[in-house]
């Protein structure tokens, strides 16, 4: 959108996208500490890369960096995704007024997270970029460096796989 016009400063990127990058990382890794490290790494790479960045599709550029940082990390650690009960869900339990409802909701989101982690990486990142981050197919294609048609099929198959994974769990 408007981001294709000018080169943003690093502070702008951090403040505008920090939260979204963190959530992207969190849903891909299923782990708060990993998400925090990853988001930190992305912001570092953005800071290094901004000097060489030319106005174009900023979203595509940013998410390409984010996604590559994630893949590098996976390769480095040979990560085995963990499906722990997310921290922020615990804090919800502590403060919310209607325990049964919140618990049900928490269990559901933990199940969705676990199902998400069972998907192969290319499907997982496609559905997270689409449904959690809210990127368009074009933006995802630029980030992942594949044709839009491939993005479309990964999103669709990813959602079907997610459904299967959730049904297996229930």
């Amino acid at each position: 959108m408007a981001s294709s016009e000018a080169v943003p400063t690093w502070e702008q990127v951090a403040s505008d996208y920090g939260r979204t990058i963190y959530n992207f990382a969190y849903r891909l890794t299923g782990n708060r500490d990993d998400a925090s490290d990853l988001a930190q790494e992305v912001l570092l790479r953005v800071r290094r890369g901004l000097a060489g960045y030319r106005p174009g599709s900023f979203e595509g550029w940013l998410w390409r960096i984010t996604r590559n940082a994630f893949l590098d990390d996976v390769r480095k650690k040979q990560r085995r995704p963990t499906a722990e009960l997310p921290d922020e869900d615990r804090s919800t339990i502590a403060t919310a007024p209607a325990p049964e409802e919140v618990l049900a909701e928490t269990r559901l989101s933990a199940e969705v997270q676990a199902a998400l982690l069972s998907l192969p990486i290319e499907f997982r990142e496609a559905v997270v970029m689409c449904d959690v981050v809210g990127l368009s197919y074009q933006e995802i294609a630029e980030a992942v460096e594949v044709p839009v048609g491939t993005v479309r099929s990964r999103i669709h198959r990813g959602r079907l796989l997610l459904r299967d994974a959730l049904e297996g769990r229930v």
Binding site: E11, A14, S15, D16, G18, R19, I21, Y22, N23, Y26, R27, R32, A35, S36, A39, Q40, L43, P86, D87, E88, D89, T92, L108, S109, V112, Q113, L116, V127, V128, C130, D131, V132, H156, G158, R159, L160, L162, R163, L166
Partner: peptide, 25 residues
């Protein structure tokens, strides 16, 4: 697929550590 999409969209937003996001944002 709309059910899967809906569930992903309704996942709670994780709050990042303060150093990743300026408080005003």
């Amino acid at each position: 697929v709309s059910e899967s999409s809906r569930m992903l969209k309704s996942l709670p937003v994780a709050e990042p550590p303060a150093h990743l996001v300026a408080p005003s944002n």
